[in-house]
Computed example of a mutant assay.
Amino acid sequence: MSRESGVTAHGVRRSFGSVEAVADVDLVAAPGRVTALIGPNGSGKTTLLLMLAGLLTPDAGTVSVAGFDPVTQTYQARSRTGWMPDVFGTWDSLTAREVLTTVAAAYRIPAADGERRAAELLDLVHLSELADQPAHVLSRGQKQRLGLARALVHDPEVLLLDEPASGLDPRSRVDLRVLVRRLAAAGKTVLVSSHVLTELDEMADDAVFISRGRTVASETVESAGETRRWRISALDQDVLVAHLDQAGVGYVVEPDGGAGVLVPLSDDTEAAALLGDAVRAGVDVVSLAPAGGVLEQKYLALEEERR
């Protein structure tokens, strides 16, 4: 697949009356990779995803999904897009199986193929035992899993996932991460929005950060983690701080009575060297670990810069 077959957005804007929900967004999500869309509430993430899904029209800018414009080439774009909203609306009178076969029919999949596809997907999202139960009896997490299956019915090239882990239990969250990585490995473009940044650390290859409707950063997860803060704590913090001062290591004592000291380190090797030096210097180190995930730290740093 070419990069153009993924998702691109350039200079995208969308307002609702006097409220500018998306002010200026640039985004690239490449095939075979998972791209995380990160931003605070009200930053325009869902509005952007709705435009990519062809459910809203941009006021300005250009959008391409799987090589097609969702506004002018609606059928071609939607037939290649799997859309999972943050809240899954269901036809309560239909069973889980009927929800999927109905969606399959909407995509013009022959009935027999739709039945087979529904069975495969119900097994994939661990809903086979509830396949013939009405959708209204499903829990929030089960409806989320059914929503993911619905997005996959027509084997789309592009997946747009808005808070897909919302309401999922821990086991289902792990299953979701594994499935998303498998879909990307198969060459699909996956764009996922989530507030659980630690999960995105394990799922995403790239990240696009937006704030107040604008793109503020875009990079790979690997490059975002080149320098991250680690938390080191000791039985006597004064002794630890004195050692760091003597060693010329930059640090920040955690505010608000935090028990540790934050140190910027580039990788595990540098962390191991810091720990070894401290122990040899007689510091009774209690723990040394990253102070949050890569994306969480990048996001917080951007928020601090913005303020």
Results as ranks from 00 to 15, higher is better:
A9N: 05
A9Q: 00
H10Y: 00
G11V: 02
R14M: 04
F16T: 06
F16W: 08
V19I: 09
V19D: 01
A21T: 07
A21D: 05
A21P: 06
V22H: 00
D24P: 10
V25W: 01
V25C: 02
V25M: 05
V25F: 01
D26H: 03
D26I: 00
L27K: 04
V28L: 04
A29Q: 03
A30H: 12
G32S: 02
R33I: 01
V34A: 01
V34F: 02
A36H: 06
L37V: 13
G39I: 06
N41M: 05
T46S: 15
T46D: 10
L48I: 01
L49Y: 06
L49I: 14
M51T: 14
M51G: 08
A53D: 12
G54I: 04
G54R: 09
G54K: 06
L56M: 09
L56F: 10
P58Y: 09
P58M: 11
D59A: 12
T62V: 07
T62Q: 11
V63E: 01
V63M: 04
S64Y: 00
S64G: 05
V65H: 14
A66H: 01
F68S: 04
P70M: 11
V71I: 07
Q73S: 14
Q73W: 00
T74G: 01
Q76K: 15
A77P: 05
R78V: 06
R78N: 07
R80M: 06
T81R: 08
M84K: 02
M84C: 09
D86C: 00
V87Y: 15
G89D: 11
W91S: 14
A96V: 04
R97K: 09
V99C: 13
T101G: 09
V103I: 11
V103E: 00
A105I: 08
A111P: 07
A112K: 11
G114L: 02
G114S: 03
E115T: 10
E115A: 14
R116A: 05
A118V: 02
A119D: 15
E120H: 12
L121C: 10
D123Q: 10
D123N: 10
L124S: 09
L124N: 05
V125L: 10
H126G: 15
L127F: 15
L127V: 15
S128N: 03
S128Y: 13
E129T: 05
E129L: 00
E129N: 01
P134E: 08
P134W: 02
A135G: 12
A135P: 14
A135W: 15
